[in-house]
Write a protein that binds this DNA or RNA. Structure first.
Lengths: 236, 236
DNA sequence: CGTTTGCTTGATACGTATCAAAGTTGGTGG
DNA sequence: CCACCAACTTTGATACGTATCAAGCAAACG
């Protein structure tokens, strides 16, 4: 049964990432059966804001955007998570609905841990909490940066910062430049920068005319990382 | 020695708040000597953004604002912490400089736990991690709300939201209305709303003329909580 | 008292949202 | 292979909220 073997192999990948690295081999073997692998297509949702907290997800592959939907129909991307990160801890911990939706930005593979299983695990192996704390810590720091960015920076700077971050997260060096390996729409970028599509487009167009960035086959390529960093850091 | 007795009594208050409630009496007695109480005057700083992480603080009394300073001299309040909350966990955990300053908004009393002591405690009593996680969870949720607020709401709505939150945190019912028991300047409020003093003042003036809020002896009083909630929730 | 610090109001400029409309791309089925 | 549709992208004109600069005012303080 090939599919079964793939499944087992994938779960085994989780063995090597933070919450589980603290476990001994026996402990791991014991809990492994509680975990299951799931795949999500680009653009699909793992869960929606407001859903009851059924599971916590550990990213094996791909990228997930945490998105808030506003009543007026506007979306806001709070964070972009990548392999090794956890998603859904907040809700799972407090037993309250997810406070944001989890949207697959590309082809995503996760290990899902049902809420009650995870709470059991944590009660039994409290050392696992360290991994959760580190993940939350990263999120607090990122959100703090985002707040500061929204208050003091203009759209151009915010976009520059976002592009550099995305390139760091999932960039690839090509002969065209430093390419961001994610199928992002202008709307996605606008939602990350806290602005509108039109403004995001205008800003990117200007940067393209200046030779700083470009889009090739729908992917954004950073042609002049130095210049982009300058724009991101300009304090005025 | 009266001062010594006060000190001991104050440390004892920490016994009843989250990270320590999980400890048995013996465990508590063992670690108690590692803790010490500190007091801060209104307007003083417990630590500054960029300082090495010397200690984690547990608030016994008073309120602390987590403030980011921008290079251009602008301040941004990321969160307001109150009794029972922890301050400084991020830096203490990762061993990196504080990512924001801790500013006493009123007369503050804290239990300080030196970094190495706290890490030891946590390694020894991993159950304590739960309290840390809950605190971080609250912060992530608050920062997420703040980001959403900054992106979709206008200054008036943001200020309304902030006033309601502050009133919930440290409000008192007087015959004048629901008074916020903190000595806040207009600048403080502007820093919380991510705007400038002038705009904050103009907005508050308007609200005062409409009979929604007022300031009496430098304290803000909410005269019409209903109306203020409406303003905070108006989705357009 | 004079000086500082915080508060207030006004005039103007700028960045970005909004509304509108046209161009582009990729996929689907005839 | 082409026609068509839907989704995404792009550009333009205009309006609005808020920052900025400037100046006067009030209260606190040594």
């Amino acid at each position: 049964m090939p599919s079964k073997r793939v499944q087992t192999a994938s779960v085994e990948l989780a063995r090597k990432i933070p919450p589980f690295t603290v476990l001994s081999q026996e402990e791991w073997e014991e809990i492994r059966s509680s975990l299951y692998v799931r795949r999500y297509e680009e653009g699909t949702f793992l869960f929606f804001e407001g859903d009851p907290p059924t599971a916590l997800y550990l990213i094996l592959e791909g990228h997930i955007a945490l998105v808030r939907h506003s009543p007026e129909g506007r979306d806001i991307v709070l964070d972009v998570m990548r392999p090794g990160n956890m998603v859904g801890e907040l809700a799972v911990f407090e037993g309250v609905p997810y406070s944001a939706s989890g949207k697959a930005l590309d082809c995503v593979q996760v290990v899902a841990i049902p809420r009650d299983k995870f709470l059991h695990l944590l009660a039994r192996y409290p050392r696992m909490a360290t991994a959760v704390i580190y993940d939350l810590t990263r999120r607090v720091r990122h959100l703090s940066d985002l707040v500061q960015s929204l208050v003091i920076e203009r759209v151009e700077q915010r976009l520059a910062r976002i592009l550099l971050r995305l390139a760091k997260i999932s960039g690839e060096y090509t002969d065209e430049g430093w390419a961001i390996n994610l199928p992002l729409t202008r709307q996605d970028l606008a939602d990350m920068a806290g602005t509108t599509v039109e403004t995001a487009i205008r800003t990117l167009s200007r940067l393209r005319k200046e030779g700083v960035v470009d889009t090739i086959h729908g992917r954004i390529v950073i042609r002049d990382p130095e210049r982009l960093s300058e724009i991101a850091e300009t304090s005025e």
